[in-house]
Design a protein around this nucleic acid. Structure first.
Length: 284
DNA sequence: CTTACGGCCTGGGTGC
DNA sequence: TGCACCCAGGCCGTAA
């Protein structure tokens, strides 16, 4: 599933190939994941892609029309669980479940393929971008240790729920939440308010390390994630807990468990991520 | 206000 | 061979 490191990898790949390219045509398949399909068909042709950026798990294409009548048009894309964005020659064979084809002025195409169609596609003009992204929290890689800890300190929700909440931090999903909590030795059911300052600092460092390592290895390919060139990531081989239930913890030898926390399957080592029930509240 | 939870969308994989 | 079921991320409504 594309989370921050996967989206970052895709964005870097697309930025290299797409910036300065102009969209010359739009072809759509199924459109139930597109906010306003007609707007996509009408707005994109003729627009130049100035830049491709990441905002949390969203991709943002900055677009400019030749006459520059409006400013700040952007294409917003969320890959959901199974979305793939790839460029290829226009004549390349079409993968199943490909629903958006953007023809480019260099004879290539940008294609969006999404088996489940849990993704999102939208053209946003002027202020709509701020509205769509306004509720999202801090980018964990842009946050200072102080900012990061402030966001969590005193919260009475489970740590797993807070890490997954895009209003708290944008970009973290199930894989990197589990991997970060393992690294910081924090149980996913632990309430944030029960964490010591030491715990918070450890978690900050764990998140930084896990996300930057994952970006370096071009993301995790657990199901069908591939980057903009169709290449799989490499970080899945470094996962310590995610989908490793039943295996031995590489740190303490305990048996990794899987449990539903905050409605999501969570993977952790019950031995080095001690259960909250066996733990006393942090001292004031 | 904050948190928890169930349901919904879709279809590939799994297990009977 | 079929088929019910699970599960994923985001979002929304509802309840405490």
């Amino acid at each position: 599933m594309p989370e921050l490191p996967e989206v970052e990898t895709v964005v870097r790949g697309l930025q290299k190939v797409l910036s300065g390219r102009r969209v010359v045509s739009v072809r759509l398949g199924k459109t139930d994941f597109i906010d306003d399909p007609v707007a996509v068909e009408q707005e994109l042709p003729g627009k130049t892609i100035l830049a491709v950026k990441r905002f949390g798990k969203f991709l943002l294409f900055d677009l400019e029309s030749p006459q520059q009548l409006e400013n700040g048009t952007s294409l917003l894309i969320h890959l959901g669980m199974t979305g793939q964005l790839r460029t290829c020659p226009a004549e390349a064979p079409v993968l199943p479940h490909t629903h958006v084809f953007l023809g480019l002025n260099d004879g290539r195409e940008l294609r969006y393929t999404d088996i489940r169609r849990f993704g999102r596609f939208a053209v946003l003009k002027n202020g709509a971008r701020e509205v769509a992204l306004g509720g999202l929290g801090l980018d964990p890689l842009e946050a200072s240790e102080k900012q990061f800890c402030e966001r969590l300190r005193g919260r009475r929700a489970r740590m797993k729920a807070l890490l997954l909440d895009q209003r708290v931090f944008r970009g973290i999903g199930n894989i990197y939440a589990d991997e970060s909590l393992w690294r910081a030795r924090i149980h996913p059911m632990k309430l944030a308010a029960m964490l010591s300052e030491r715990n918070l600092r450890d978690l900050y460092r764990a998140v930084q390390k896990v996300l930057t390592d994952a970006i370096r290895l071009r993301g995790s390919s657990v199901s069908d994630y591939v980057d903009s060139e169709g290449e799989r990531g490499g970080f899945q081989q470094r996962h310590r807990v995610y989908q490793r239930h039943g295996e031995k913890c590489s740190r303490c030898g305990g048996t990794i468990r899987r449990a539903i926390v905050a409605g999501r399957s969570s993977h952790f080592c019950p031995r080095c991520q001690p259960s909250p029930r066996q733990q006393k509240p942090a001292k004031p």
